[in-house]
Amino acid sequence: MSQQDQATERQDQPTPQQVRRWRRYLADERAEGAVYRHLAARREGAEREILLGLADAERRHEQHWLDLLGAAAAKPARAAVRSRVLGWLARTFGGVFVLALAQSAEQRSAYASEEDATTAMAADERVHGEVVRALASRGRSRMSGTFRAAVFGVNDGLVSNLALVLGIGATGTGAGTVLFTGLAGLLAGALSMGAGEYVSVRSQRELLESSRPDPAAGAALPDLDVDVNELALVYRARGMSATEAEGHAAAVLARVRAGHDAPEPAESAYEEIGTGWSAALSSFGFFAVGALLPILPYLFGLTGSSALLLAAGLVGLALLGTGAVVGVLSGGPPLRRALRQLGIGYGAAAVTYLLGLAFGTTVA
C-alpha cells in the first residue's frame, strides 16, 4: 500500500471522540424506539399505529449510526439518563406525562448541529416532535378538567393556608391557635373550592347545552318549503357562507326527501369540562391535600420559628413539584415553571407574614 493510500485510510478512520458520540446516539435511538413501542403496547387503533411508525423511524436512525460505527458497534454505550428514565416511565405508566417528556426529548435533538447526522434525520426529529405534540394534546384535552382542578386546588391550598399559618404564627399566638386556625382554613377553603368548582362547571355545561342544535328540529325537515329553504339560514347562522349554506341545505333536504334519516346534530365538545360533582370532589380533595402541608409541623408538636420554617419548606417543595409537572405537561421548561410557582406562593405568604409581625408588634 502506498503512503498516499495509507494517509487516505487514516483520514477515513473516525476519531475516538466521534466513535463515543456515535455510540451515544445509537444507544439513545434504541432507547427512544423502545419508548414508542412501550407506549404503543398500551394503545389501540390509530394512536398505536402512529407510535409504531415513530419506532420504525428511530430504527432507521439507529441503522445510520450502526453503518458508521461498523465493528465498533459491538461495544454499545448506555443511553443518556433521561432516555433511560423515560423508558422506565413508558414501561411502568405510559400516558400523557410520558408523551410530554418524549415531545421535549425530540425537540432537544442535537442532529441539527451534528455534522455526522444527515439533514433528513434532523428533519425527522423535528417532525417527530410535532407528531408527539399532537398525540400529547389529545391526552391533555382528555385530562384538562381534572388537571385544572388538581393544579388550582393544590396550589390554592398550599398558598392560602401557608399564608394563613405564617400570618397568625407571626403575631406570637400559641401553637394550638395556629393549628386550629390552619384546620379551619383547610376545611373552609376546601368547601369553598368544591362549591365554586361545582357551580362553575355546571354553569359552563348549561351554557354549552343551550348552544347545541335541537334534535327535534330534524323532524320538521320533510315539511320545509324547498323553494324557500329556511334551513340554509341555520347553516349561515353557524358560520357558513351563503353559497355553502344553500348547497348544504339542499343536500340535507334531498337526503331527507329520499327517505333517509335526518343528519345527527353536531355534538358540543363539552365532555372535556367534566361533571360538576367530579370537579367539586376533585377540587375539595386537592385543596385539602395542599392545605394540610402547612399545618403538618403543628400536628407533630412543633412550635415557634421551627414550625414556621418547616411549614414554609414543605410548601416550597410542593410548589416546585407542581410547577415542574405543569411545565412538563405543557411542553415548557419545568425549572422556570417551578421557580415561578415558588415565587408567587412565597410572595403571597411573605405579605401575610409581614402583616402578622406588624399586627403582633402593635398589639404588644
Results as ranks from 00 to 15, higher is better:
Leu302Arg: 07
Ala237Thr: 13
Ala40Val: 10
Arg59Gln: 08
Glu49Gly: 14
Ala190Arg: 02
Val351Cys: 06
Thr322Trp: 14
Pro297Gly: 03
Gly172Asn: 02
Arg91Val: 00
Thr8Phe: 10
Phe147Glu: 06
Val326Arg: 09
Leu208Arg: 11
Asp56His: 10
Gly290Cys: 11
Met240Thr: 12
Asp261Trp: 11
Ala232Phe: 06
Ala80Asn: 02
Ala79Met: 03
Gly247Phe: 11
Ala245Tyr: 14
Ala117Gly: 00
Ser109Arg: 06
Gly169Gln: 00
Gly285Thr: 11
Gln3Ile: 04
Ala110Glu: 15
Pro213Gln: 05
Gln204Ile: 12
Thr146Gln: 04
Gly139Gln: 14
Val131Lys: 05
Met240Lys: 06
Leu233Pro: 11
Ala7Thr: 13
Gly70Ile: 12
Gly304Ala: 00
Arg340Ser: 14
Gly174Arg: 13
Val151Asp: 07
Ser200Leu: 03
Ala74His: 10
Gly94His: 05
Val234Ile: 05
Arg24Cys: 08
Gln11Leu: 13
Val289Leu: 14
Ser141Val: 05
Lys75Tyr: 09
Ala358Asp: 15
Glu29Phe: 00
Ala31Asp: 14
Thr352Glu: 00
Tyr111Ala: 15
Asp28Ala: 11
Gly129Phe: 10
Asp116His: 14
Gly331Met: 15
Asp56Lys: 05
Val315Trp: 01
Gly189Cys: 03
Phe152Gly: 03
Thr171Arg: 00
Pro76Ile: 00
Phe359Leu: 10
Glu115Asn: 06
Glu32Thr: 09
Gly194Glu: 03
Ala338Asp: 09
Ala190Asp: 08
Ala134Ile: 10
Asp156Gln: 10
Glu125Thr: 12
Leu166Met: 05
Ala262Gly: 03
Leu314Ala: 01
Val132Gln: 01
Ala150Lys: 11
Ser192Arg: 03
Ala184Ile: 02
Ala324Phe: 06
Arg21Glu: 13
Val325His: 09
Glu62Trp: 07
Ala364Pro: 10
Asp225Asn: 08
Leu292Pro: 00
Ala219Pro: 01
Asp223Pro: 00
Gln107Val: 13
Ala74Thr: 07
Glu264His: 07
Leu292Met: 15
Ala250Glu: 08
Ala122Glu: 07
Gly95Thr: 04
His248Tyr: 15
Pro76Val: 02
Arg84Ser: 02
Pro76Phe: 03
Gly247Glu: 13
Gly196Glu: 01
Ala71Cys: 04
Val325Glu: 07
Ala150His: 08
Ala350Gly: 07
Ala364Met: 15
Pro297Ala: 01
Met121Thr: 08
Arg24Asn: 07
